[in-house]
């Protein structure tokens, strides 16, 4: 509420100081950040140091194939007698690497293209048509096509998932730029002779950070899902790498007799993606209540 009503408030020494919530207080009022953060932290921990404590995930043991969960094999064994628990722990690393790599690359590329599109009229129409075109191609089909053309490696899978995510980031960045560039403080900076790169860096870019962090978490979650779907369809990372998608793909045939081969990696994947999404929701509510309404 304005303090203007009191003319005395205009004296220089009585500049009012508003009580500000500390970062910590804000986070505490959104428990989803804590819950999501802890869950994700555990999954990252498992992914980073977990593999040190398990047996070899690719060691074959044909005598003990398709064993149900028991003391020796927490999650049972697969059709080659490999320890599903060890494979799931190793898979965490791959899922997280794909998730983080895709979100970082997609946000990075999207940020640059979105800023250009939002500020340079001439390029805007062209860029946005290309983005519309990219968005009309179903993401999974696009990824399948890209991978089947360039061969399946971790890198091509990451790129294939990045390509369809980029247009979403571009649209979001562009919409932020278009809104912010109309703000009087940006116009004041133009009137003060600030050059375009500086205006973008000082006045526009900071406004994109909050929505970008939120968007990055959602992309991270959806990238992990897409990776597992590609693996499941047999179009993902080479089958010898124990990614969650690959483990589940191999479990399909034996689903009726050994459902754990699909369920355990499935649960691990769902929990990881859930933790990322909960974290994303919490950050959205904390960082910017305005974008909360748009998503």
């Amino acid at each position: 509420m304005s303090v203007d009503a009191n003319p005395q408030a205009m004296e220089p020494e009585s500049v009012p100081a508003k009580a500000e919530l500390s970062q910590w207080q804000i986070i505490r009022s959104h428990p989803s950040i804590i819950i999501g953060g802890i869950l994700l932290g555990i999954m990252i921990l498992i992914g980073v140091i977990g593999p040190l404590f398990t047996v070899d995930p690719i060691a074959l043991n044909p005598i003990k194939r398709l064993k149900p969960p028991q003391a020796e094999f927490f999650f049972g064994t697969d059709f080659l007698g490999r320890d599903v628990f060890a494979r799931v722990v190793h898979g965490a690393r791959i899922s997280l690497v794909v998730g983080l790599a895709v979100s970082a690359i997609a946000v990075g590329i999207g940020l640059i293209i979105g800023m250009i599109s939002g500020y340079i009229r001439v390029l805007d129409a062209i860029i946005m048509r290309i983005m519309d075109g990219l968005m009309s191609i179903p993401a999974i089909l696009l990824a399948i096509a890209l991978i089947s053309l360039s061969g399946a490696t971790l890198a091509t899978v990451v790129i294939a998932i990045v390509v369809p995510e980029v247009p979403r980031v571009v649209r979001l960045v562009r919409s932020v730029v278009l809104t912010v560039r109309e703000e009087p403080y940006v116009e004041a900076a133009i009137a003060a002779g600030t050059t375009l790169p500086l205006i973008l860096y000082r006045h526009i870019l900071p406004n994109t950070i909050a929505p970008m962090i939120v968007q990055a978490t959602y992309i991270c979650g959806s990238a992990m899902l897409t990776e597992s779907i590609l693996g499941f369809l047999g179009a993902g990372i080479p089958p010898e790498i124990p990614s969650w998608g690959n483990i589940m793909a191999e479990g399909r045939t034996y689903f009726q007799i050994s459902p754990w081969i699909i369920f355990y990696p499935g649960i691990a994947l769902a929990v990881t993606v859930l933790s990322v999404n909960i974290l994303g929701d919490g950050m959205r509510d904390t960082l910017d209540p305005r974008i909360a309404r748009k998503m």
């Binding site: 703000e183 009087p184 116009e187 004041a188 900076a189 003060a192 002779g193 006045h203 900071p206």
Partner: peptide, 18 residues
């Protein structure tokens, strides 16, 4: 540009909040 300066209507949007 320095010769002409402007003050806008909305005091809440005229300064970069960050």
């Amino acid at each position: 540009r320095r010769d002409v300066q402007i003050v806008f209507q909305d005091p809440y949007r005229s300064l970069n909040p960050r």
